[in-house]
Design a protein around this nucleic acid. Structure first.
Lengths: 208, 208
DNA sequence: TTTATATGACTGACTGGTCAGTTATTGATT
DNA sequence: AATCAATAACTGACCAGTCAGTCATATAAA
C-alpha cells in the first residue's frame, strides 16, 4: 500500500484553533474592554499559552481585526439578502431591519465591545475602512432599491424631496439609532419590539 | 483703614487653571485617544508640569469625567430649551433637533473622542449614570410634550399605535442615528443639511 | 531699605508595576 | 533525524501617580 501521507495535507487543526482563540478573545474583550484585556487573559480563556496565541495571530491588533470581521458577517449576510430578495419594497426593508434587530438582540452580551469597535472606526485604519465601505455599500444598495421601486410606482419619495439618497440616509439613521440607543441604554427599549414599531411607522413615509 | 489682606484669600487662580487643563485634555484625548494619551501629553499641551495637573485633578479618570460633564452641557441646554418653549410642537422638536445637529457639527473635531465616551458608557459607572439619566429624562420629556400636544389636538400619534413613548423613542432613534452615522462616517452625510431633511420628514408622521 | 519668614504654585526625576511581544526549550509526530 | 506545535520564562518599553524640593511673591521685622 502506498503511503499517501507524504502528499496528504495534515489534518489541519489550525483553523479550529484560530476559532477557539477568536471565541476566547470575544469573551475577554467583551468582559474587560479592548485596552484593559491582556493577551494573557485571552490565552487563559482559550486554555492555551500566550505564545500559542501569537502562533495564530501576529499581534493584538490583528486579533481585534479578525474579531471585527467576524462580527460583520451577519450584517453582510443581511445586506446580501436585502439585495437578492424580490419581495415588495416594504417587506424587503422590514426583513432587513428584522435581520439587524435580531442580530443585535442576540448579541446583547457583546454590546459593550461593539461600542468600542464603533469608536475604533475613527482610530484605526482597518476599522475605518471596514465601516466606511460597509455603510457606503449599504446606502448605495438602499438608494438603488428605492429608485427601482419608485420607478415601478411602488412608493412615493415626495416626503424626501424625491431624493432616494435622502430617504436611504433617513432609513439608515433610524435603524442605527435604534441599535445605538439599545446598546448604550439597555432597558430603555426593546430592540425587537420597539425597533419593529419604529421601522413600520417609518415605512408609512413611503405611502404618498 | 483696616488691612483686610489678612483674611482676604489670594486671587484664586485654580478655576482658571482647571479650565486650561480641561481644554488641553480635550485636545490631547481627541488627537490620541483616551487610553493612548498620556498625562504628560496633557500637561505639555497645557504648558505646565504633570505634577501640577495632579494638583487640580486627582486622577486620569477624574479628568475624563470632568471632560464628559463639560461635553454634556450643550445637550442639557437644548433639553431645557425644549421644555421651556411654548411654540407649536413641530417647531419645538425641530429647534431641538437643530440645536443637537449644530452642536455636533460644531464639535466635528471631537467626534472620535465622543465615540470613545459612548463606549465608556458601558464600562465606567459614572459615564453610564450620566448617559442613562440623560436619555431617560430626554425620553420622558418628549413623552410628556407629545402627550400634551396630542390632547390639544396638535398632532396624531396613530402611526405609533397612539403611544407617546413609541413616538418618543422613534424620534430619539432618528436623531441619534443621524449623529452616529455622521460621527462614524464623516463625508457620508451633512449633519445640518441631511439631518434637517430627515427630521422634517419624520415630523410628517405626526400629521394624521 | 534690607533681611527674614511664610506660603501657594509648580516642577520633574523617580518608583512600582504592567504588558505586548520574543525566545529557548521540550515533547510529539513522521 | 527533522519538523512542528506548544510552552514558560523572559525582556524592555511604557506610564500613572508620587514627592522632595524650587520658585515667586507677599508680608513682617529689623
Amino acid at each position: 500500500m502506498t503511503d499517501w501521507s507524504v502528499i496528504m495535507p495534515k489534518p489541519n487543526v489550525s483553523e479550529e484553533r484560530k476559532q477557539t482563540i477568536l471565541f476566547a478573545a470575544a469573551q475577554v474583550f467583551t468582559a474587560q474592554g479592548l485596552s484593559i484585556a491582556r493577551m494573557d487573559d485571552v490565552a487563559a480563556a482559550a486554555g492555551i499559552s500566550k505564545g500559542t496565541v501569537y502562533l495564530y495571530y501576529p499581534s493584538k491588533d490583528k486579533l481585534i481585526e479578525a474579531l471585527l470581521h467576524r462580527l460583520f458577517e451577519p450584517l453582510e449576510a443581511a445586506l446580501v439578502r436585502l439585495n437578492e430578495s424580490d419581495a415588495p419594497i416594504r417587506e424587503r426593508l422590514m426583513v432587513y431591519a428584522q435581520d439587524n434587530l435580531l442580530a443585535f438582540d442576540t448579541a446583547r452580551a457583546l454590546h459593550p465591545l461593539i461600542l468600542e469597535l464603533f469608536a475604533l472606526s475613527r482610530r484605526q485604519d482597518f476599522a475605518g475602512q471596514l465601516f466606511g465601505t460597509y455603510f457606503l455599500r449599504y446606502r448605495d444598495n438602499l438608494r438603488d432599491i428605492l429608485r427601482a421601486a419608485a420607478q415601478r410606482g411602488e412608493l412615493s419619495l415626495a416626503v424626501f424631496g424625491a431624493s432616494e439618497e435622502q430617504a436611504s440616509l433617513s432609513f439608515m439613521a433610524l435603524l442605527e439609532g435604534i441599535l445605538i440607543l439599545a446598546m448604550m441604554n439597555p432597558g430603555l427599549l426593546s430592540l425587537q419590539q420597539d425597533g419593529t414599531v419604529a421601522v413600520q411607522s417609518w415605512l408609512r413615509l413611503l405611502d404618498a
